[in-house]
Design a protein around this nucleic acid. Sequence first.
DNA 1: AATGAATGAGGGTTCATTCAT
DNA 2: TATGAATGAACCCTCATTCAT
Lengths: 214, 214, 214, 214
Amino acid sequence: MASVRRVSQPQRKSNGKYEAILRSAIKVFAGSGFFNSKVADVAREAGVADGTVYLYFKNKDDILVSIFNYYMEEALAAGKASLARTDDPIEKLRRIVHAHLERLGRDRNLAIVFQVELRSSTKFMEQFSATKVTEYLDLIRSVLEEGQQHGAFRSELNTKVAAKVLFGALDEMATNWVLSRKRYSLASTAEPLLDVFLNGIGRTRAAKQSARAN
Amino acid sequence: MASVRRVSQPQRKSNGKYEAILRSAIKVFAGSGFFNSKVADVAREAGVADGTVYLYFKNKDDILVSIFNYYMEEALAAGKASLARTDDPIEKLRRIVHAHLERLGRDRNLAIVFQVELRSSTKFMEQFSATKVTEYLDLIRSVLEEGQQHGAFRSELNTKVAAKVLFGALDEMATNWVLSRKRYSLASTAEPLLDVFLNGIGRTRAAKQSARAN
Amino acid sequence: MASVRRVSQPQRKSNGKYEAILRSAIKVFAGSGFFNSKVADVAREAGVADGTVYLYFKNKDDILVSIFNYYMEEALAAGKASLARTDDPIEKLRRIVHAHLERLGRDRNLAIVFQVELRSSTKFMEQFSATKVTEYLDLIRSVLEEGQQHGAFRSELNTKVAAKVLFGALDEMATNWVLSRKRYSLASTAEPLLDVFLNGIGRTRAAKQSARAN
Amino acid sequence: MASVRRVSQPQRKSNGKYEAILRSAIKVFAGSGFFNSKVADVAREAGVADGTVYLYFKNKDDILVSIFNYYMEEALAAGKASLARTDDPIEKLRRIVHAHLERLGRDRNLAIVFQVELRSSTKFMEQFSATKVTEYLDLIRSVLEEGQQHGAFRSELNTKVAAKVLFGALDEMATNWVLSRKRYSLASTAEPLLDVFLNGIGRTRAAKQSARAN
DNA sequence: AATGAATGAGGGTTCATTCAT
DNA sequence: TATGAATGAACCCTCATTCAT
């Protein structure tokens, strides 16, 4: 993965402090919320002095943004690599959905930061929306259009809306999992979600499916 | 609609100050973000003194929560009334989707507060999730189950997941609209959304539909 | 007793509100401390509206000062009347000591206000010292000098210091009683106090006393 | 003297800031009264930033309490050391009285804080009464009992009351000095005070004394 | 590179006081 | 006289950030 280190700073020894601070920040932000977390808390959790944080991050906001960029880049890279290994659009969607839910389901703190803390204000939101989320939506959309060309998805489908529907569904699934006091596997919601997305909720399809099952 | 005035305070003259402060807060929070807004800003916008805000709200957080409760109660009440006027489950879903998107699309500031500011922290999120959002998800789910009994929706559908898919889709549509620099009608996404949700994205249904169209 | 009502206000109907507020203030100030008490607390305790307090008192400080003046005048008047009924200087001292301790011992809240809250700041202190406390010290001193003339007290005694010793002893006795978690009768300390003050702590007097007892 | 640095904070560089702030607080509190003084005033007087105060003290109250503890510890330690250098109980009392009055008489601002500001509310008072003042009263009392055993003081004396009489006398002497507009030496009141306390005000002792003087 | 003591701007909140009714 | 809703000045404290070591 490409370096995500601050470019405005001289190259630093790769002594793991950057990652250590990021990981501490995830833990601290998830525990107390971004606005209630103190930079000093993050520093203590990472085992460095307060000032050291500012050698690796421009300011407190930058830590949050860096968490997003770091893990989003990682996820996008892994996702694209995974998609490249199949041609089937349905399988591609399946991989997107599973990867999304499994990745967040694996690290609850990371999920909290992504589903809650990163929504803290329009200031943050706009940055994400303007960049990576759009990129993610475009990735989904390209799969949908590819599927339309392959004849796998309905050709008259509004792929822009459909991409948002899928992303919104994934997002809600994750947010709900994070906020629910019930403890269940986030990944287990992947197939039911895909079922609704691929087949809709309408009866006739169900009829057709059960017919096909016979 | 039931009174939404603070119950923890003695009865106040109904001089509209409560609503005035709420409305000012929506404008101010939408403009600067909840954490960057000062209570003094809200007071000035409402044309009252700083201290007056505390006659109607316990603290700054309480203003935000009250915005949510006030408009959510209003929306739920209107929604339930609307649903009661039809028996068709598909029509009920349509009304939910349209009402949701039209309501937010009508007041951009309110939409910003709902889609962005209210997600500010787990502290807020948990309150909503624990109450009104759950109520909303349950409302959707009951329509889906009703539809299953009527034979309108697939009987083997996971209604819990499907409700979240719909809510997530609505939520994403609104968030995207709020954050996008493009200006379009939020309500116009209602039908494409319903199309995906009701029919899925799969080809076969499309085939059937086009066949029916002939 | 002369009127203690605010002179800067037009004469008010004697409906007991002035005294009611004073008494409520003693209770509230004793319970929470003057600086932690709110005017609204006093008003509620007195069963009047906040604004009504300002019809009887200039401001919050004035309530505290009025408590002092009201009860001090009462005490001084009663004390002087009592002293006038005897010629014996020792008996006069005895009456002063007993009256002081009995009066405060009878009303713990009043004692708290006098021993603690009225010492709140030099602002208050200087007012008292400049007026009533000096008057009280002078009263004691005049009894001592009278006693010297009668030959009851040592003629070379520094009466100024002795008056302060007695007042300080009374004051400390009351403060200690107020702050002690032990519950005892304040008045019961009168005789031991007089013993020390009249006879000192030196041995030889004890010898003489026991000799006299024989 | 034992360290008086805040124990609740990590060890700090011993750069004198703690003492500097304490001394500034004495000056500021004495000048304006505790409740009318702003933390910012104390900081400015000490030549540090507002926030620095909170590196050394928990809050504003803690500054006041720390003044008391710092100087009381110092005084008690010095006092005990002084008492240990003599066996004569009368001489011990003399040293207590002189030390008390000289110490406060030397630093008017400190005296103001001790005699006025520290009495600000039961909240403070109870802390002192519960600890150091009780310790001080006990010290006096132990000297009195020691004196009774040595035959220097009357054996039937109520030492508990006598200790309070002496402390009250010392306290009143100091308070009176602080509030008086006349400027005199506080220490000069030591001997007259001791005279009253040791010999009482009664005539017969005076007679005996004058006889002894011959 | 790393430290952590020091900085100081910033704001939520309280509450004594006023005044229209 | 009495009310109590409204006012707005005042202030303690936090904490992101800096910088001398």
